[in-house]
Design a protein around this nucleic acid. Structure first.
Lengths: 347, 347
DNA sequence: CTGTTAGCGCTTTCAT
DNA sequence: ATGAAAGCGCTAACAG
């Protein structure tokens, strides 16, 4: 008769089994895992051997229940279809994973009420903390987080009042700077292709930046030259088609992100409108999608990866009770390519 | 003196509190949540009122511990930088979320041993089931899943032996068909830009499809015309530069995915090589990145979203003990655009 | 239809 | 440095 191998037992191997094999109590097994410094080196080795032999994997739910922390962080993003948030989440995930945290992912598809509901689901699933995109949220979201004592970081923007921890950049300044540049180049008539601003502070701020720069130069954005679009190439393409049908076309069209800008480029290409000869086009985010167009898309490079990393670091620090900077403002940079230039060089 | 509002209690509201307020036992609270049909309608309403009033959110860890299911599914993908997996995961997440499941996300960056380690982490975090990308995995991964009784689905490929549940399409056939098409168009000298095939069955199968079609036509792939690249534009661009430096350039360059193909286009653009005049280029996945290039990239449209949906549906069915189809083979389609054409039309 | 009771696997005092 | 024992919040058996 052999000693029963772990494979024959029908139930999961638990700390009890490890303890038995190592000839210690479950308390010691727990300590070996969580505070190995408090365990005699020899004992520790015995326990570790037993763990390996039994291929012990601790039971997270039991640990969470007892210790009140799950080592899971919820990331709620608008959508993964736009590559941006996927890349930020990737950076976030990497940093968190290195520290033993898992990322629970959810999307809200630009519906703030869905976001609230989804956050509730994730609390139920036990996440310790949250990462959200943007500063616009349902007030009930913040009460929920408060009630359940869940730390969170807002990303991709900076909370103007500084009431919420945030990691992002100044979306308004980004487009302001770009618009300034175009104005200096001589553009006077502007168009804007924008994502719906409802619950989307990034789009709102980016639009505001453009308007601010124009106002400063004594210019205005003709309402007919402001075309809303969903964040898809097709929708932006249609928006641009409407703009091209205008009696007086703008000479510069700014989009609130690269997908919209590329959609606009498609419409121009199709209509035989030369870029930048007849119309300059700019985006935001400096994605590969824009950079590889012909001509390359002028855009604002945003700190896509840094946001994810910084958010992860802040949450880790907070969850471990270490000091942290609640509001971080990162930089951006204008990236000029062939899609923009001085107006009126009708090629 | 008022009755203490929920806000003043320092600890989380639990089923006990709801039970007390509704004048029932915690068992009834649990039933109201999980099997409302077994509860008297009047009682049910009282319980639900109490839940709303106290804004009760059940404690997932406690539930998992007791019921042995966490309603979490782990999704382990190679990387989120390539938009593909983000979109599949998005579809997966949506379907799972509708059914009360949360998605725990992880990346392995094309390292099979990292994948194993990460899977262990997720088991520890308590996920009920897994979604993996591809059919190549560390054998120990499968033992681990077996040991812990975790169902899983492989995606983006079909397990040739049918030993593992999978949802995908025939990667080899996809490039085989495309290569056939190019051969029929008159191409004889081919180039291949491929991702590392180590642990990447998609790349391997896609390469095999091309070789098979060539062999069938009595052609061969010159080793000098096979250029490996990491899945980034820059790396593919370099690979194409090497190919362009060859004494005898291929007339058709196939890439194992769209990112690599677009990188190749960049190199051609830079070198003043006309597409498709001097060289035809094709990709796989039919992404926006490829579709929006000038000329548009000829590619193979893969069932990106359907894979995610089908994987979610299979896992839900399995976890709920319903019947399911273990191996699903989805379709693909060739999408022809301006980047490919008959050889030798030196523009 | 509802309450009582036991216990999921772990961590954490409190002893020693 | 280690063990004994309690209990995190919930669900599942069993009674009634």
């Amino acid at each position: 008769m052999e000693i029963a191998p772990p494979t024959e037992s029908r139930s999961r191997v638990a700390a009890r089994d490890v303890a038995q094999l190592a000839g210690v109590s479950t308390a010691t097994v727990s300590r070996a895992l969580n505070t190995p410094g408090q365990v005699d080196p020899e004992t520790l080795e015995r326990v570790r051997d037993a763990m390996d032999k039994l291929r012990y994997v601790p039971h997270g739910a039991a640990r969470s229940l007892r210790s009140q922390r799950s080592k899971m962080v919820g990331a709620i993003v608008p959508s993964f279809d736009y590559a941006l948030y996927a890349r930020t989440t990737s950076a976030l995930q990497q940093r968190l994973s290195e520290n033993g945290y898992a990322v629970v992912l959810a999307e809200h598809h630009y519906q703030l009420d869905t976001e609230l509901q989804v956050a509730r689901q994730l609390i139920e699933h036990g996440v310790d903390a949250f990462v959200f995109v943007g500063v616009d949220h349902d007030p009930r979201l913040f009460s929920l987080l408060e009630d359940y004592g869940r730390p969170y970081v807002l990303t991709w923007g900076v909370d103007p009042a500084g009431r919420h921890p945030s990691v992002g950049f100044d979306n308004r300044a980004a487009t302001y700077d770009m618009a300034r540049h175009l104005i200096v180049q001589g553009h006077r008539r502007f168009g804007l292709i924008t994502a719906s601003v409802e619950g989307n502070d990034r789009a709102r701020e980016r639009g505001a930046g453009i308007r601010a720069a124009l106002a400063e130069a004594g210019l205005e954005l003709d309402p007919a030259c402001v075309q809303p679009a969903r964040i898809t190439l097709a929708s932006a393409q249609q928006a641009m088609q409407r703009m091209l049908a205008l009696p007086q076309r703008p000479t510069a069209v700014m989009a609130t992100n690269d997908v919209l800008a590329v959609g606009a480029m498609l419409a121009c290409r199709e209509a035989g409108v030369s870029i930048p000869g007849e119309i300059s086009i700019t985006g935001v985010d400096n994605t590969d999608l824009g950079a590889t167009q012909t001509p390359g898309l002028t855009s604002v490079g945003t700190p896509i990866v840094q946001i994810g990393r910084a958010a992860a670091e802040q949450l880790i620090a907070r969850l471990e009770g270490k000091p942290f900077t609640a509001c971080q403002t990162l930089g951006f940079e204008l990236v000029f390519r062939g899609s923009s230039g001085p107006p009126g060089i009708r090629a």
